[in-house]
Simulated assay, not measured.
Amino acid sequence: MAVTPAYCRLMARYNAWQNGQFKAACERLTEAEMRAERGAFFGSIMQTLNHLLWGDMMWMSRFDGNSPPKGGIGESVDLCPTLAMWGVERFRTDQRMSLWAEKVSDTELSGTLTWFSGAANRDVTAPTAHCVVHMFNHQTHHRGQIHAMLTAAGQTIGDTDLVLMPETFSGEDKWH
């Protein structure tokens, strides 16, 4: 599998675009609606948003060497107590991801990554490219859950297809 810097830039842009759309939909809900148990793996919209942000922060700490978020997966659902705080941290993390994607090299992507996994309770070593794909896949997985919960709450998100993202067909990230 070839994971390139262009792929990372494209997916970082897609991630930020989607997070902006999801934030706008969430802002139309009440606090009670955001925190209502909805039968998803992490329960509510807010808890799932928090877990997704926590996961992105954790993966970025492994990629860029900066600090990881506090706590483990169990605490991830309480990362930000309010949607406003989540929005600030989400924006910061999306910017961090975009900056990393702008700088990442083919050499870095062809290497390996080693970290202590709290989920597996052991050191893990994996190809960096697989870790990058996992991070972006993890986002898509949980955004799908959030999308379903928002739809059930009567909200519309807007386009979610990668090929409909504004400016997808411009610059060096053109689809071939």
Rank of each mutant, 00 (worst) to 15 (best):
Q21L: 12
H147T: 12
E31L: 14
D94I: 00
Y14F: 08
R122E: 10
L53Y: 04
R28E: 12
E102N: 14
V132K: 01
S110A: 15
A16V: 07
D78G: 15
E102G: 08
T140H: 09
M97K: 09
W54H: 03
G74F: 11
L53T: 03
G72M: 08
H138A: 04
M34K: 07
V133R: 08
S61N: 04
P5A: 03
V132E: 06
M85I: 15
C26M: 08
V77R: 11
F41H: 01
M149T: 00
A101I: 06
W100D: 11
R13K: 09
K23N: 12
T4Q: 02
V132Y: 07
G72Y: 02
C80Y: 06
A119H: 12
T125I: 07
Q139H: 14
E31I: 10
L52Q: 10
S117G: 04
A36Q: 15
A119Y: 12
V88L: 15
S67Q: 15
H138L: 02
F41C: 01
Q139I: 05
H130D: 13
N137C: 00
M34T: 02
W17I: 03
L113R: 09
E102H: 08
D78R: 14
M34D: 01
N15W: 04
A101K: 15
A40D: 05
D64F: 04
L10T: 08
R90G: 07
V77I: 12
C8K: 05
G118T: 13
T48P: 01
E89Q: 08
P5C: 03
L79M: 10
W59V: 02
T114A: 10
T93W: 15
E33I: 02
G118R: 08
M135C: 11
T112S: 15
P5G: 02
Y14A: 01
V3F: 05
A148E: 02
H51A: 01
L150D: 00
G43P: 04
L83R: 07
A32E: 10
V88K: 09
S105P: 09
T107S: 13
W100M: 05
E27S: 06
P81A: 01
T82L: 07
D64Y: 05
K70G: 13
M11H: 10
C131L: 11
A119F: 13
G71P: 03
A6D: 14
Q18I: 10
H51E: 01
A40W: 02
A148K: 00
E102C: 13
M11Q: 12
G39T: 03
N66V: 15
G87I: 09
Q139E: 14
P81I: 00
G111F: 02
D94L: 03
K103N: 15
F41S: 00
V124W: 10
D106E: 12
